[in-house]
Write a protein that binds this DNA or RNA. Sequence first.
DNA 1: ATTGTGCAAGAGCGGTGCTCTCCTTTGTGT
DNA 2: ACACAAAGGAGAGCACCGCTCTTGCACAAT
Lengths: 231, 231
Amino acid sequence: MSTAHGARARARIEVTAAIKEAARRQLAAEGAAKLSLRAVARELGMASSALYRYFPSRDELLTALIIDAYDSLGEAAETAHAEAAHTPPARRWTVVCESARTWALGHPHEYALIYGSPVPGYKAPDTTVPAASRLAFLALDILRDAHRRSALALPPLSADLRPEAERMAADLAPDLPPEVVVAMVAAWAELFGLVGFELFGQFHRVVEDRERFFRHAVDRLARSVGLPASS
Amino acid sequence: MSTAHGARARARIEVTAAIKEAARRQLAAEGAAKLSLRAVARELGMASSALYRYFPSRDELLTALIIDAYDSLGEAAETAHAEAAHTPPARRWTVVCESARTWALGHPHEYALIYGSPVPGYKAPDTTVPAASRLAFLALDILRDAHRRSALALPPLSADLRPEAERMAADLAPDLPPEVVVAMVAAWAELFGLVGFELFGQFHRVVEDRERFFRHAVDRLARSVGLPASS
DNA sequence: ATTGTGCAAGAGCGGTGCTCTCCTTTGTGT
DNA sequence: ACACAAAGGAGAGCACCGCTCTTGCACAAT
């Protein structure tokens, strides 16, 4: 079907890829707010109106870039994790957190796109959910593994959080105790608080040796999800 | 001298305030990206070019709004803290964290302005630093008080972080042990990770009972800075 | 060979930040 | 009291933006 249409369909795929590529280049250079369809078209030597044959709106193009960014981060983390396979869970936790930070520092605008303030008026479609979840599921995998080896040491949940915690666990990881799932979600958000603060300049004149500070904070985070302190 | 100049100076102050007010209204309604000088001018019934007599650029206007936002958050937190004076530090910690979340939920666009992705090309001037620090210093006050009553229980710092930790302590709170300062800074960033995730939709279909979840996470955070668990 | 369709281009709409020029108002020094 | 300089407002205009609509061309299927 797609191959049957021949050259036409193939050209379409190629142009679509070229647009995304040019857009990603602009994104890295200037940031999402300055991503301009006209500039993309200019770079590709085509009329701005022609882009609308491929992406019905600027927001659709943004969505494509968002999914790519989540996937890029997810892949970086999964690769780092795979390279640390056969190390203890605490070590792998650190590796994954640090790979997230490294990716963010290397792709600041793409990071801002997915974990920064949402573009006003832009509503991320559910298409982005699977890509966005990769990192969280990776973290859950690590905790699952750690839990299999020896139960994670976590304080019991307060009674009023129990229902919500059980709901979350049922959704995300039915095989794990609710307190582990809750701790993981909190740590996940906190991790990106650390990364975001560093990237967005909130540590200006406060934290200088950010690498070491991050390492330390990730260690705290590991303890807060019940993993033993590393190193 | 400013009063000596009389009506002129007073008018300038009033118009400046009116511009900021209109801009803040637009900010709340549409977000920073859609803040338009022309729209502000329209609302005030003046020519867009006239605004440049008061703010040399859109970015300068943004800076003013940023400082206001930091101050608004700082004041909300300080008020909440003052109302909880004479309660134990752990309780006050919770109160301050919750006031930050409440403020953020009530002022989402202003929150995005100060803790979300920075506007590309926009460099926050050092003028914003004092306002931005209010909350951190409030948290330090609480920890200082707790520390005076009985030393906070924190694991020792790893050797390689010591120099940086001591530098941070010397800058921020020379009277507190370095590990307390480091823990506070990390918790500060993590707190806004939690708030940002909730506000920016990252908890969509993950956390439903966000109030209770946040309370729990703040409790974890309190423990991570050496405060006793509350409730 | 003709017909139908996918695609690019151009013009144009209403919007943006910002600048420059012109003109009125206002405050001050003589 | 009056002249003059400074401040502030208005308007036109520049280069840009996202997006739409119409036109014309080149290719594909029949």
